[in-house]
Amino acid sequence: MPAAARLRRRLALAPAAALLAGCAATPAAPSPTTGTATGAGRLVVAYEAARTPEDRTARAFLRAHRVLEDAAAYADARIALPRDVPLRAASCEAPNPYWDEAAGRITYCYGLVPEARRLFARAGTDGTGGTPARRPAAAVDEDVVGLSNGILFHELGHALVDLYDLPVTGREEDAVDQLAVLLLASGDERHAGYAISTIDAWGALWKAAEGGDPGVAAYSDVHSLDGQRFFNWACWLYGSDPGRFADAVDAEGNPDGVLPRDRAALCPAEFRRIESSWRTLLAPHLKQP
């Protein structure tokens, strides 16, 4: 498998047509409702006290980069919520952000920051396929912010399914992965980059597990395998604009492409179906028609 980070170098990033076309720029604050969206709720950001020194470092990183604030503003400008939904950062037993239906809130776990930083630091290469080289701290930080956005929008998808009782046929985890890609692909170059950071993360996790059996826990998990998520996210981003993201495809003259041609041929139609489905589900709740 070509290094997942090559996808970032090869893709020509530019705004892609996707969910909520016309919302390509990220506003500084949520824009007023201009469509017929129901609900006046918004994501309300809070940072809880950190329990450990590592969590305190993560808390400072998230606040300095306005990770939760920017994600909340980006989502609030596009989708109406039936009520305010807390989006909190907190110390957790495991480093996995989650939507808590009973509490009605999204939690970003501080532990994700150091885990993601270690993952992205290991994922770098010297660009020749040789000995791995340590990546610049600024590049790692950018990827941590990107992955955080990908995961936050994934959790927002779970929240929307529950808050609006949206029908989901198939695996909900795959469906909300699709929504996360749609939200990122419909943004500016920075948000398309966030999608690539998330793709890089799934690719790095898959690469780390290559040659070994993932085990019963992975096969029976509600999430798709890391390798599947890597190819799904890459497919959907490519499918959102095949012209701009053509270098994602493993084609003649482009050996660094990550998508097999047989899958790539299906991605534009796959993306259109995903976009149409989510548009239909969210139609009453979109802030722009």
Rank of each mutant, 00 (worst) to 15 (best):
A138G: 00
V140P: 03
D141A: 12
E142K: 02
D143R: 13
D143E: 09
D143H: 06
V145M: 00
V145E: 04
G146R: 05
L147A: 05
L147I: 01
N149E: 10
N149L: 10
G150D: 00
I151K: 01
I151F: 05
H154R: 01
H154M: 04
E155G: 00
E155Q: 12
E155D: 02
L156S: 05
G157I: 03
L160E: 03
L163F: 11
L163H: 07
L163T: 08
Y164G: 06
Y164I: 10
Y164L: 15
P167G: 10
V168T: 10
T169C: 06
T169L: 14
G170F: 04
R171M: 08
R171I: 05
E172K: 13
E172L: 14
D174A: 09
A175V: 05
V176P: 08
V176Q: 07
D177F: 02
D177V: 00
Q178N: 15
L179H: 02
A180F: 09
V181D: 05
V181Q: 12
L182R: 08
L182T: 04
L182E: 08
L183A: 01
L183Y: 10
A185M: 13
S186W: 09
E189H: 07
E189K: 13
E189Q: 15
R190Q: 15
R190E: 15
R190I: 11
A192F: 11
A192P: 06
G193E: 00
G193I: 01
I196W: 10
T198M: 14
T198V: 05
T198Y: 06
T198W: 12
I199E: 10
I199F: 14
A201V: 00
W202G: 04
W202A: 07
W202M: 13
G203I: 08
W206Q: 06
W206N: 03
W206I: 05
K207H: 10
A208F: 09
E210G: 01
G211C: 02
G212P: 04
D213N: 15
D213A: 11
D213C: 11
G215I: 09
V216S: 13
D221Q: 11
D221S: 15
D221G: 14
H223W: 07
G227N: 10
Q228F: 02
Q228G: 04
R229G: 03
F231I: 13
N232M: 13
A234F: 04
W236G: 02
L237A: 09
Y238H: 14
S240G: 14
S240N: 11
S240K: 12
D241V: 04
P242L: 10
P242E: 03
R244K: 13
F245Y: 14
F245G: 04
